[in-house]
Design a protein around this nucleic acid. Structure first.
Lengths: 234, 234
DNA sequence: AAAATAAATCTGGTTAACCAAATAAGAGTG
DNA sequence: CACTCTTATTTGGTTAACCAGATTTATTTT
């Protein structure tokens, strides 16, 4: 188990090294936005690593929107300029895994806005899906079972109803880590989940009534319980 | 150029198909959190696709925290439960590329919070880096050159100073797309950038003075100009 | 000399064979 | 039966050869 972690971080070190070498290459060759990177083959040779390692590094940078691979053609520098490229690669290299506090802080921030937007933009189909998720949650709670997943799925349904694809994506990204941490810290126990039903219902009603301020307020109430619970544990 | 797009979306279709098949498999086999997925080889055989395609799909789900590959051991289902797994995979499959409006909306939301946090938590080193970024930005603007990148780098410096790794990551994720869209819509022209110097300076000063409310207010002012500009174009 | 065509090369993507570590099965020992 | 050690197998990761399409170069034609 320990070895696994070491090997993992080792891989990461290798990948980061490749990424920073790609950055240096872009600087050295003065590659402008839209310019083509050397081929994966020559990069792997130049960096003395396997081609798949280079591919993995490129894929990561592609995910962050910094590079763009086109089949049978080449890998291109995104249209964001050398300076931004440098800064962002440095940031990416220094990215640390988010701590629990950061996650909760971010989640609350996102959900407050999401609830307001959902109240303004929700369609009937959105309502139906939210209602379904709420039903599943309540059922689980009333049976006295753990309902962390159903809880989060209800919140994701709200995110979908916000009509903001960007916010929706960000919520999806932080949710798994939230769930993991919740279960690790034993947040959302059976007792507090029961009170959660009403809170969820309130949020749902506010969004149904298309009342953005009320929705935001109810989310705030909902997270107040959660917030304190989390900070007590930490 | 057109063929490229088709092939790209084709690849995505293939990957999405694999992802949904993995989801179905988890359901069918009733895999619980922590359980092991079948090996990449058997998956590629079962799905009639190449092993690297399976690997790519797994990597994507790994990025979203749903799976976890451990070398020489196997790929494991994350500790988030079957129900959440199902819901999240469905969401991921339906994720659409964010539109400009969503991006701007999200960015403003994040930056308002980030500025407040930065005012509370910034270290002297954070200040130094922000100052440096601000300097580079001003210089570019005063020379009458385009300064979109330096602009964003200043904002990323604030994100770093917020002391919230989660928010920092999210900002990094949306920034490239923001830059691309800015340049596409010709936001941030030379004229308005000049007024941006003072706005940036105000934000910097508020954070330096550790005044969170002032910082938030100055960010709001800064984005008011930008906000209107964007919505006019759209 | 310019344009059109054909061949050669270069590209990212795919495939299949190989590697080392981790696990599981079996043999041996007390 | 319990425990240790060895061996065989399975695993994700790596490597190298191959593919089809795009690009460049060379050749031919006008």
């Amino acid at each position: 188990m320990k070895l696994e972690v070491i090997s993992k971080s080792d891989n990461r070190e290798v990948q980061n090294s490749i990424i920073s070498q790609i950055r240096d290459l872009i600087n050295y060759k003065n590659l402008e936005p839209g310019d083509k990177l050397p081929s994966e083959r020559s990069l792997s040779e130049k960096f003395s690593v396997s081609r798949s390692s280079v591919r993995d590094a490129i894929q990561k940078l592609e995910f962050y929107g910094l590079l763009k691979s086109i089949p049978q053609s080449g890998t291109f520098v995104a249209n964001i300029g050398v300076i931004a490229m440098n800064g962002m690669i440095d940031d990416i290299l220094r990215l640390e895994d988010p701590d629990f506090k950061s996650l909760v802080e971010t989640r609350i921030l996102l959900e407050l806005k999401i609830a307001r937007l959902a109240a303004l933009r929700r369609t009937d189909e959105d309502l139906r899906q939210m209602s379904e998720a709420l039903e599943a949650y309540s059922e689980k709670v009333l049976k006295g079972e753990d309902a962390v997943q159903e809880d989060l799925l209800f919140h994701l349904a709200i995110a979908k109803a916000s009509g903001n694809s960007s916010l929706n994506t960000l919520m999806l990204m932080i949710t798994p880590e939230i769930i993991t941490n919740f279960e690790k810290h034993h947040v959302c126990d059976k007792g507090m989940a029961r009170s959660g039903i009403k809170e969820h219902q309130d949020i749902f009603n506010a969004i149904k009534d298309q009342n953005p301020l009320e929705a935001k307020e109810k989310v705030k109430v909902h997270f107040k319980t959660l917030y304190q619970y989390c900070y007590n544990i930490e």
